[in-house]
Nucleic acid binder design. Structure first.
Lengths: 121, 121
DNA sequence: CTGGATCCCTATCGATACTG
DNA sequence: CAGTATCGATAGGGATCCAG
């Protein structure tokens, strides 16, 4: 129990190096942004239209949604499709990568449920 | 069911509700902060002293470390222990909750390795 | 060694108004 | 419907200096 009482071979994060951490940080900084989780959740649940997302996510302005969607799109988590009707409609969908991220985020939900004080009525 | 073509019973995030999302957002906003992942990683790998962390995490100033540690502490992810030597030394450790968070963050590392383009310029 | 206090610049956000 | 433009307030972050 001197410096590291943990077994490096047994714990998965032991061989997470700085480079991985940098990469993970970028993802976490995107996902950690305000509104990002809510937007991803909305998309995961089937929302596709711009206005639909602003409706589902309470308090989200169109301005912020635009900003977030651009980020998520350049992170290749969300795909934007323009359908040339009149007027044009735009559809947003999670990419396979985005879906994978949602899956990777699931343990966080579990963590929250384990530790967050549940108010039961 | 309305417009969701997904099977609610099959996909785990389907029954993630807004409340869970709010809770998860708070965690993600903390973890997504600049330096937070690096600090958590440093602690997970055995760093305990203040200066040790600033050394391990390149570019991290004492000011930012102070701020982040306070956040992590009030989120109950990190525990601060003062050892009354002369001069006093302070030890930071991950709480069980903090360790659990690290574990919950592991899939993110997996995600990154799956999708991040390996840089071979 | 472990921070706290300032300064100062920038990024971010919300509100509002406007457009094709 | 799906955004863009602008503004003002605030929060974040780096640099620097200081203190117990």
């Amino acid at each position: 129990m001197t410096s590291a009482q943990t077994d490096r071979a047994a714990v998965p994060w032991a061989h997470t190096d700085e480079a991985d951490c940098q990469h993970a940080s970028r993802i976490l900084e995107i996902v950690g942004q305000r509104w990002s989780p809510s937007i991803l959740l909305a998309l995961a649940r089937g929302a596709q239209r711009f206005t639909e997302i602003t409706t589902v996510v309470a308090g989200l302005s169109s301005r912020m949604l635009t900003l977030r969607l651009k980020q998520l799109e350049s992170a290749r988590l969300v795909e934007r499709t323009v359908i040339p009707t009149t007027p044009v409609s735009v559809r947003y969908r999670l990419t396979p990568q985005g879906l994978d991220l949602i899956t990777a985020l699931q343990p966080i939900a579990g963590f929250v449920q384990r530790w967050e004080p549940r108010d039961r009525s």
